[in-house]
Write a protein that binds this DNA or RNA. Structure first.
Ligand SMILES: [Mn+2]
Ligand SMILES: [Mn+2]
Ligand SMILES: [Zn+2]
Ligand SMILES: [Zn+2]
Lengths: 137, 137
DNA sequence: AAGTAGATTATAACTATTCTAAAGTAATAA
DNA sequence: TTATTACTTTAGAATAGTTATAATCTACTT
């Protein structure tokens, strides 16, 4: 796959050695135009299914943390049971389908800009995130 | 405390027996006009400090779950490390002070109504919550 | 090719939370 | 009242997600 050269470059540029584990995880996370949301458990299952040689859980955690640190992933707070990650690192919002335990992107353009009429001294806004919880009708 | 009679009634009306543990937790959670945010660990410490006889951690969890189920508490998704609860059960939003690990209420009137220009078939909106993350300047 | 810093791994440790089942208590019936 | 019952509390075990450890391995530099 010629794509992998991009991942190698991406990793090198980030100061991360392009190991075969990281490259495989890059393929899974960034190999498609579509972004998606996942838990470590989700990713672990995808790897197990798409990869002949296994990648240890520790490496999956390490890699996700590394990518998070480099800004290649975003962490989404949905509930306190587990961490969710997003390959879409642009500013956007989410539906959370409670019944399916699934996140759905809401593009910034689909939400009227959120205006906060209040400021906290000594603090600056790092992010504004809207979470819309959905239930079956 | 004459207030406790209210808590006894509140518990009885909810089908919960007014045990001394539950009454004490009611006092702590609902005994003041000011609402607040807490983790189980926070609550556990408050109880330890304000109560002569200890309340077991299991009971604290049980009680918080019971109150959550009755709608006397709201759960707030901030991060995936632990659950946060809110004694303010009205619709409102939050600042999250990352450095202090503290939630601050944003009253509904302090936020322009959030308009979502998208609907998901078969799903209805259960809640819309804005989380504004704050960092030190 | 050798040396080094960085990466992977199995597994132990940790933390928040839930489960279990025994003992205690509040409500209710006799 | 007292007896019965259902609910509650509790210590501690179990579980699940995550992080730490330290030995082995590998990518990069020289
Ligand atoms: Mn999942
Ligand atoms: Mn806290
Ligand atoms: Zn997203
Ligand atoms: Zn609040």
């Amino acid at each position: 796959m010629s794509n992998n050269l991009n991942f190698v470059a991406k990793l090198r540029n980030s100061g991360l050695r392009p190991t075969k584990q990281r490259i495989k995880i890059c393929e899974i996370l960034f190999g498609s135009k579509e972004t998606f949301h996942f838990s470590i458990n989700d990713l672990s299952k995808i790897i197990a299914q798409k990869n002949s040689e296994k990648i240890s859980l520790a490496t999956i955690y390490n890699t996700v943390h590394a990518f998070l640190g480099k800004g290649y992933l975003k962490q989404i707070a949905v509930n306190s049971e587990q961490s969710y990650y997003d390959t879409n690192t642009t500013d956007h919002h989410h539906f959370y389908d409670i019944d399916k335990d699934k996140l759905i992107d809401i593009h910034d353009s689909e939400v009227e800009p959120v205006k906060i009429n209040r400021k906290i001294p000594g603090k600056r806004i790092k992010s504004i995130e809207v979470l819309v919880k959905l239930q079956n009708t």
